[in-house]
Each structure stands twice: as structure tokens, then as C-alpha cells.
């Protein structure tokens, strides 16, 4: 993994609420750290809904810009993560619905299209296909935990679930993913 900034590291101490308030006051210098801290989680949630990297990147960016535009309506800056991720989730669902109406054959073609040729065969495609087998909540939890390195406390606060539920989702998600990915590896060797 080349670049995986933790929220606390990016925000220099983890004072997210302070950063959000600075953006609300119009301090332009606060925009960069806030975006740097939360664009990846936004992408993770968009990916959990959409299952495509390119779409998830698009939606994460669009949703973040919308969130910055109406950041005054974030009344509890300490709960910024949950507020932002809800905007991302809603926009991702809208995009998924648009895609469903537009696309004739969605999943298989799309996954093939976003796999970089130089990548190890099956890895990205395999992960996306395996994620498809999980529930939406399981996908969000496993991506926020294993991709973003969020703690269960952070996930629970952002997704408004209990820490116990977060652990359960992660346990189930990993079990299912390992099964799927192991099957994929076996298929490749046959």
C-alpha cells in the first residue's frame, strides 16, 4: 500500500470538529486537510454501494464538493464523518439507479473495463466480485476497516451502528471474502 493516511495523521491530532468549524468559517486553508482526511472513506462507501472503482471515484468527488458547499448544515461538526458518508451513500445510490436504468449488461463488462492491464490477473476483478457477495453494511465495514484502517469505534460512530455490530459485520465479511477469493484462486489454477 503506497499511501494510506489515517484521519488523525492527516488532521494533525485528529481534531476533525475543529477542522470542520474552520471550513464553516470560510478558512480556505482548512479545505485541503479535510478533503485529504475524508476523500478515501468517501470513496470506500461509494465503492461499497457501486462496486466499480471509476464510478466510486466520481461519486466520492461529487459528493464531497456538495458537502463542502452546504457544510453550514453540518450542525454537529464532531459527527462530520457520518454526515459526509450519508451524502456519499445517497448520491451513490442515485448513481446506481441511473446506471441500472441505463446499462444493459452492467457488472461483468464494467469490472473488465476498469481492470488495469498491468495488474495481477484477477486481483481487482476478484475483489470486486467477492464484495458483491456481501451485504451493503458488510462492504462498508470491511472497506472502512481493512482499506481505510478505521477503528471499530470510528466505524460505529460514522455508520451509526454499535461497535459489536461493526465487529460482527467485519467477521462475516472477511469470512465470506476469503471463501470467495480462495475459490477464485482455485479456478485460476485449474
Amino acid at each position: 500500500m503506497l499511501h494510506r493516511p489515517k484521519v488523525q495523521a492527516v488532521t494533525d491530532g485528529g481534531d476533525i470538529a475543529g477542522l470542520v468549524r474552520r471550513v464553516q468559517r470560510g478558512e480556505t486553508a482548512a479545505y485541503g486537510p479535510l478533503v485529504r482526511a475524508f476523500l478515501r472513506p468517501a470513496y470506500a462507501v461509494a465503492l461499497a454501494v457501486l462496486g466499480r472503482r471509476a464510478d466510486a471515484e466520481d461519486v466520492a468527488q461529487d459528493a464531497f464538493i456538495v458537502a463542502l458547499e452546504k457544510i453550514e448544515s453540518c450542525r454537529h461538526p464532531e459527527r462530520f464523518a457520518g454526515w459526509l458518508l450519508q451524502i456519499v451513500r445517497n448520491r451513490a445510490k442515485n448513481r446506481r439507479e441511473e446506471r441500472r436504468l441505463r446499462d444493459v449488461a452492467p457488472a461483468a463488462d464494467a469490472v473488465d473495463a476498469v481492470v488495469a492491464p498491468a495488474m495481477v490477473a484477477g486481483s481487482e476483478r476478484g475483489l470486486l466480485a467477492a464484495l458483491e457477495q456481501l451485504s451493503a453494511a458488510q462492504r462498508e465495514v470491511v472497506l472502512l476497516h481493512d482499506l481505510e484502517e478505521w477503528t471499530h469505534a470510528e466505524i460505529a460512530a460514522a455508520l451509526e451502528i454499535s461497535e459489536v455490530m461493526s465487529r460482527q459485520h467485519l467477521f462475516q465479511a472477511r469470512r465470506l471474502l476469503r471463501g470467495q477469493l480462495a475459490g477464485e484462486v482455485e479456478d485460476e489454477h485449474e
Binding site: L2, R53, H145
Partner: peptide, 19 residues
Amino acid sequence: MSEEGRIDFGPLDPSRDRE
């Protein structure tokens, strides 16, 4: 959950290409 159980989502990492 132990760190060993972590799934490697590296191929889906949006910041692999840093630029």
C-alpha cells in the same frame, strides 16, 4: 479482530497512483 485477518484491498486503493 487481528491484523492477520485483514483483507488486502490494495488493488482497489484509489491512492496507489499518487499523482
